[in-house]
């Protein structure tokens, strides 16, 4: 099959970008989207042109490295699919495709379709961990956890941090990512001691990184390759409000200086 690609080319973070049109000719419908780009890049290299830069690593949908906006949808038209797991059979022969990087102030373009998602790392650094010493892996069922909570924590932990939620959000909000990260810890016993500080600190960092705010469009859930539910955003909202309401009590327990 043949495809026409309008690809965002941008030499560096400070350069001006523009769309350049390429043709992918005689590609197999069973190729993955990234394999098709590899073929296009080989052609560009043979012609002595600069290949299209795109992020990728595992190519099995679990690392979160790949991702681009394909015809107005992050990771392309298929639900719950990363760009690397998307195959050309999801497109029509002769179709025109617009390939764009994630658009967000917090994710500056590094080159072409690659963006710097360091903002997500900094949100995690603000509280996406537990600091209690919990020893080695406990015996099964030694820490009783409701089955529903264990399942929900796993659902939230499925987040691969690809940034499609931010890319899809009309507000450029990172609420789904942050919500997933506070939820998978906040639903488990080990995450309880720092639950509210975590919510407050991660939201503060999320805001400082320049992400927008959530208006409950639900576009993030639709774009998420792992199908993470916006119900986690409500959980984040609740934890953040509770962090405010319990701030005085926590300060009283540990003193003004904080922990």
């Amino acid at each position: 099959m043949n495809l026409t690609l309008h690809v965002w080319r941008q030499k560096g973070p400070r350069e001006r970008g523009r769309f350049v049109t390429y043709r992918a000719t005689d590609v197999s419908a069973d190729m993955s989207f990234l394999e098709m780009l590899d073929v296009v890049n080989e052609g560009l290299l043979l012609k002595g042109e600069e290949p299209i830069a795109f992020d990728h690593d595992c190519r099995e949908g679990i690392c979160g490295a790949c991702g681009m906006v394909i015809n107005g949808r992050p990771h392309g038209p298929k639900a719950r699919t990363t760009t690397c797991q998307l195959h050309l059979r999801s497109f029509r022969d002769g179709q025109e495709l617009w390939l764009e990087p994630w658009r967000s102030r917090a994710f500056p373009v590094v080159k072409d379709l690659i963006v710097d998602r360091g903002a997500f790392d900094r949100v995690i650094q603000a509280g996406g961990y537990i600091s209690a010493a919990i020893g080695s892996a406990p015996d099964a069922n030694a820490v009783p956890i409701r089955k529903e909570n264990a399942d929900l924590a796993m659902d939230a932990a499925a987040c691969i941090g690809c940034g499609a939620c931010v890319a899809a959000c009309p507000n450029g909000s990172a609420m789904l990512f942050t919500a997933a990260k506070i939820s998978h810890l906040g639903l488990l016993a080990q995450g309880q001691p720092e639950r509210y500080e975590r919510a407050a600190a991660m939201v503060e960092t999320m805001d400082a990184e320049g992400f927008g705010s959530c208006t409950n469009h639900n576009e993030c859930e639709a774009a998420c390759p792992k199908g993470i539910s916006v119900a986690f955003i409500a959980r984040l909202n609740a934890d953040f409000v509770r962090a405010r309401l319990t701030e005085g009590r926590r300060l009283e327990q540990v003193g003004e200086g904080g922990v």
């Binding site: 309008h6 965002w8 769309f19 906006v69 015809n71 107005g72 949808r73 617009w98 764009e100 658009r103 967000s104 102030r105 917090a106 899809a168 009309p170 507000n171 450029g172 909000s173 320049g210 992400f211 927008g212 705010s213 208006t215 469009h217 639900n218 576009e219 859930e221 639709a222 774009a223």
Partner: peptide
């Protein structure tokens, strides 16, 4: 704040669940 969060818009953006 939300407008500032996306200084460069998409050439093509399709709504899905909104």
């Amino acid at each position: 704040d939300s407008w500032a969060a996306r200084p460069v818009g998409y050439r093509l953006w399709k709504a899905k669940d909104s």
